[in-house]
Structure formats: structure tokens, C-alpha cells
Write a protein that binds this DNA or RNA. Structure first.
Lengths: 339, 339
DNA sequence: AGGCGCGAGGAAAAGGCTTTCCTTGTAGCC
DNA sequence: GGCTACAAGGAAAGCCTTTTCCTCGCGCCT
């Protein structure tokens, strides 16, 4: 690869001059030299070595984000918002998929630190795991102690700024909707127990239940992987255990889609026989049949705010912002069948 | 941030020793020093500066991939395959979203070159744009000239190794299916004209049409954005212009889902009134109603092969591999309504 | 005892760039 | 003419690691 020095030699100038021209420094250089240098750059197809630049410059210009999986629509939206703001502020974004493996999450924090990122954004559910939380906080604190900025979305008890999606409240809204419609036998298709998102959303559902003098007995809560197939598996189990179920609350839309698939397979109509509700309002939610009644989280905005917090040098670190949830009425929720 | 020198000072050893211990070099160091150094590393929360390492080491260990958008299922799958192989071979992957903007694609090639990546993988449709193709090839050649490896998926006329999805053949398969079912008035919901993927898939459809002594007149081909909303718009236009349509071939599943939405809105049943077929077999294809008849491309494998080619140092660069397409029968294709 | 080899650790260069501080040359002034 | 002041370009010092090449000391052999 051609280096700065190669260009300088070819143009017959010093490395300093080339650097100034290539980076558009304010220092004035004569038209003639500029031209010679630019020509040499062209001829040698010179591209500055980003690592050397990073080493030589003092200011950082990359931020890292750790998500479960960017191709999951939930995180795709958050990332979109994040990228937009990053782009506006001239920052590059490094995306890391943790696949919900705490170990890997820890590794990625180190990796991002090694990459000298200006800020780390952690998105996605936390874990009920004190040892992990402690380890994570230790790593993040060390990073913050050296000027790194941290911002998390939807995590309790982690150092740094935070944007908190209204998981509890969103679930409460949708729970109210279900109970108000008259359902008494409600099953919950839940994500793994150790995710804080699960706990939060279940809490919202429970609050709604209490308000309607109903309960959500443990035997009607089935935990499974937080995706389409998990939703299908949990629904099948639920249906087998409780044939009288008239409504299923899935803890996200992917799981709801899995539920829909099982219901269809078993010849149960939705919402005629069984109602189904989701969570997150991912784009596909309106295109399945029946279209999903769900809760929308302003994901793009959440991502944008998370990075904005991290990049705002004014305020010292721990600030918490809330993100509202809104109900989206579609067709998958109706009154219970009158049996 | 703590540096190697800080650790060395604290442990009372030289920088060389610290480096050797931290990197597990084969050189032997006494237990005592090792312990002192490791303790200092802990205390200072030292993490090596990745950029300095890159500068100092000779071998590269990152690869870059340029896709339209990782959160698009098509590219998500390709990326998954790619990441798997990259992980196995100890490589890090930098993902760049071009959002189908040729300009941005060019910029990303430069950026990846600046990052000193070992290989660049370019995935996604090419463009019918000689100026762009020339510029891209110039950049890639410059990169390859300095030892960079390039591998593309689904691009004609680009330097480097290639994996070619069977776009033409897949479309041929599905076209045959449509015409064999007896459809005479077939509309095509197509992606933008300047994408080579569009041309290839249309060619396959046309070949099937010729075989059945049918034609695909231009007025029954509607071009739109390569996504759900584009599919909806094109379908609406097609239906307005040709109410007698009995089948719609969408050039990918997202567009097919948009078509399904419009059809449902207009009270047309699928496949009773109008049949719909997609392309790509993205995961959601089986969960919409009716489940999509489509063509499957082995996307994960395509990604894996693309990076495997790039990382294989044996062979010199231009090798071309083909990836087969297979038909997936589901419910969205039926015989034409007998009107 | 002298020489050799070897093992453990350190010194220093290299890697590519930015940026501060200098040098040099020229214009402008008295 | 001699001086200052300023503009343009260059020299060189970092930035942080890795790695090659040394050095030093010790044990062993003859």
C-alpha cells in the first residue's frame, strides 16, 4: 500500500505538506504544490491508513454499539436511529452482535475499548444475573474513568446514561385491553426468565390483571426463546395444558407470529377462537393475518436519543430518559368466544 | 487510558516483557514477572490499543463487507454465513450499509481500504451503470494490486472472486410454475430497472414465458422500490391498468408481501382471484397468509462461500461459483380464476 | 580457569500519520 | 541598507505496539 511518505517523495514535498493537503488543514499551501500532491495521490491511489491516523490524532470519532442481533427488526430500528445521529455528527459506528450471550457482551466491551471508541451504546434487555452485572459495570466504569461515554437502552442498574422503553407500561396497556375485552383465560408466551425485559413486561401485564381482579397464574406463563420458533413452542405447550385459553399475550411480535402459526395449524381462528397480541410493532406486524394488535415503541427515536446522550459532552453521565409506548389496535384481538 | 508503558512502569519491567506476556508470545518469562505484570494489567484495567497493534503487526485480521442493509433479511442471511466463517477463521467483520447508493459504495471501498482490511466482500445487486462499474473496478483493482482480496456475490463484471446466485434460473423455475398453472395475464412487480438483479430475474421469467408461448409485455411490468411499499405501489398500478390479471410475480418476497396487502385491501382473494409468487424465501414468507410460493436461494451458504473464496490464499483471484435456486411450493399460487 | 552456549530480559527501531515548532525567504518599513 | 514581520514549507517529536537484535549473567565443559 502506498504511504504518505510515498506520496511526498513522488510529489517532491515533505510528508507534512501532504498531510495538510489531504486533510484540508487550515494552513495555506500554494496552488502548485497542492496540485502536484493531489496528482501523486491519484497516481498512487493513496488512501490514508486509518489506524495510523487514529494513533496520531487525539480525538476519537467512532462509537460502538452492542445489540442482540442487528438483523432482528427491534434492533434494526434502534440501530437505524443511532446511525442517523452518528452520521450527522460525523461518527462511524461499529456494530457488535452479542446474540444475548453475556460472556460475549463482556468481550465486546473490551474490544470496543481496544478500538478506542468515543462511546459505547448497549441496547437490549439486561439479565437477572448479579455476577454478570457486576462484571459489566466494572468494565464500563473503567472505560468511563478514562473519558469513555456509555449509554444503555432498557437496562436497569448499569452505569452511564439510559433510555428506558416503557416495557412495564406498554404491557400494562395491552393487558388492560385484553381484560377489558372480557378474557378470563389468558396465556402468556414469555421470553426467557432471566431477561429483565421479560420481568418488566410481565409486571405490566400483572398490574393490568390486578386492576381487573384477574390473575396470571404461573401455569399460564410459558417461557421460551425470544423469537418466532420460541413463540410457536410456547403456544403449543400452553394450548396443550389449557385448552380453554381465549387469549394469548406474546412478549414480542416475533413470538406472536409463532403463536399465529400454531393456532392456524390447529385450525383455531384468530381472534374468533383465540385472540393474540404482540409487542414492539415491528414492520411485519401489519402484514400478517390477522394483523397484530400490539404496542409500539419509538425504536428509531430510542436509538437516536441513546447516542445523543452519549455524545453530549455537556452533562455528566447518569441521565435517564423515558420512551413512551402506545397501543396499536389491529385485528388480532377480539372478545372471547362465548363457550 | 492506560498504555503498555504504564503497565511496564508499574510492574517494573520493560515494555517488551509486558507485550510478550499480554500476547502470550512463545518467549519464556519467569513466573514472578508474569505475575507482577498480570497484576498491573488488572489494576490499571489495561486493554491494548487495537490501532497501535494493527500498525505494529504485519498481518491483517479484519474483513469488510458492503451490503445494501444488514437488517434486510436477504442480507442478514448472507451476513450470517459470512460471520460464521469469519469467526471460525479468527477474523473480525466490519459491516457497511450502502443503502443501494453507488456513491456510498465507492466511499465504503475506500473506507475499508483505509481500515487495512484483508478482504472486501461486496454483496447485492450490481447496477447497469458503466461509469460506476468502471470507477468501482478501478478502486477494487488498486486494492487488489496491493494484496487485498475481493469477493462479490451476484455481480457481473466486477473484479475478484464471485458467487453467483441463480437469479435467472430461479425466476425461470417460478415462471414455469405460473405458466404451467395456466395463467395468461401475468403482471410483474419489479425492482428498479438499473439493478442487474432485476434484469436477471426478468430474463428468467421471460425464458419461461417463451417456453409456454406467452409474452410478458412491458405494460404488465411495473418497476418500483425493492421493498414492501414498492411492491404495494407497483401492484396497485398494475391492478389499475389491467384488471384481468390473474397472477403477479414479485421480484422478491418483500414486494410480494406488499402485493398481498394491496390485494387484501381490494378484497381480492389469493390465490382464488389472483396468485402471487415471491423470490428469496425469506423467513417470514411461510408466516404470511397465504404462505408464499417462492424461490429459495441458499443465502447463508452464499455468504459463507463468498468469504471462503476471499480468504483462500491458494488460488489467484477470479473464480466464479454458482449457487442453486430451488422452488418452494406453498399456498399463494393456484390456477387462474375461470372467468 | 577460560571459553562457550544458553536463557531471560531490555533497548530500540519500525509502522504511518499528525502537529508543533523551526527555518528560510521575502516583503515592507524606517 | 538594515531591520522586523510574516508566510510557506520542512524537520522531528510524538501516538502505542511489536519484534528483532543485544546484553548480561550463569552454568557447564574441557
Amino acid at each position: 500500500m502506498a504511504t504518505l511518505a510515498d506520496v511526498a517523495r513522488r510529489a517532491g514535498v515533505s510528508a507534512a505538506t501532504v498531510s495538510r493537503i489531504v486533510n484540508g488543514s487550515p494552513k495555506i499551501v500554494s496552488e502548485e504544490l497542492r496540485e502536484r500532491v493531489l496528482r501523486a495521490v491519484q497516481e498512487l491511489q493513496y488512501v490514508p491508513n486509518a489506524h495510523a491516523q487514529l494513533l496520531a490524532r487525539s480525538h476519537r470519532t467512532t462509537v460502538g454499539v452492542i445489540v442482540h442481533d442487528v438483523s432482528d427488526p427491534y434492533f434494526a430500528e434502534i440501530t437505524r436511529g443511532l446511525q442517523r445521529v452518528a452520521g450527522e455528527q460525523g461518527r462511524l459506528v461499529i456494530i457488535c452482535n452479542s446474540y444475548r450471550d453475556p460472556e460475549r457482551e463482556l468481550e465486546y466491551v473490551e474490544l470496543l475499548r481496544a478500538q478506542q471508541v468515543e462511546a459505547i451504546i448497549l441496547a437490549g434487555s439486561g439479565y437477572h444475573d448479579p455476577a454478570f452485572t457486576k462484571a459489566l459495570n466494572a468494565k464500563l466504569s473503567a472505560y468511563m474513568a478514562t473519558g469513555g461515554r456509555v449509554s444503555v437502552v432498557g437496562r436497569h442498574k448499569v452505569a452511564g446514561d439510559a433510555v428506558m422503553p416503557a416495557n412495564e407500561h406498554g404491557a400494562y396497556l395491552i393487558g388492560r385491553e385484553i381484560f377489558a375485552a372480557g378474557h378470563r383465560h389468558v396465556g402468556v408466551v414469555a421470553a426467557p426468565k432471566q431477561l429483565t425485559t421479560t420481568t418488566d413486561r410481565l409486571a405490566g401485564l400483572r398490574r393490568a390483571a390486578r386492576e381487573y381482579r384477574r390473575t396470571l397464574p404461573a401455569r399460564r406463563i410459558e417461557y421460551a426463546e425470544f423469537d418466532r420458533d420460541g413463540g410457536a413452542a410456547a403456544t403449543a405447550a400452553l394450548l396443550d395444558a389449557e385448552p380453554r385459553l381465549t387469549a394469548i399475550a406474546a412478549l414480542n411480535d416475533s413470538m406472536a407470529i409463532g403463536a399465529l402459526a400454531v393456532l392456524r395449524e390447529r385450525g383455531l381462528s384468530v381472534p374468533g377462537d383465540v385472540s393474540v397480541v404482540g409487542f414492539d410493532d415491528m414492520p411485519i406486524a401489519r402484514d400478517v393475518t390477522p394483523a397484530l394488535t400490539t404496542v409500539r415503541l419509538p425504536l428509531v427515536e430510542i436509538g437516536a436519543r441513546a447516542i445523543a446522550l452519549a455524545l453530549d459532552p455537556q452533562h455528566p453521565n447518569p441521565r435517564v430518559e423515558d420512551a413512551e409506548a402506545t397501543l396499536v389496535h389491529r385485528e388480532s384481538l377480539g372478545p372471547p368466544r362465548s363457550s
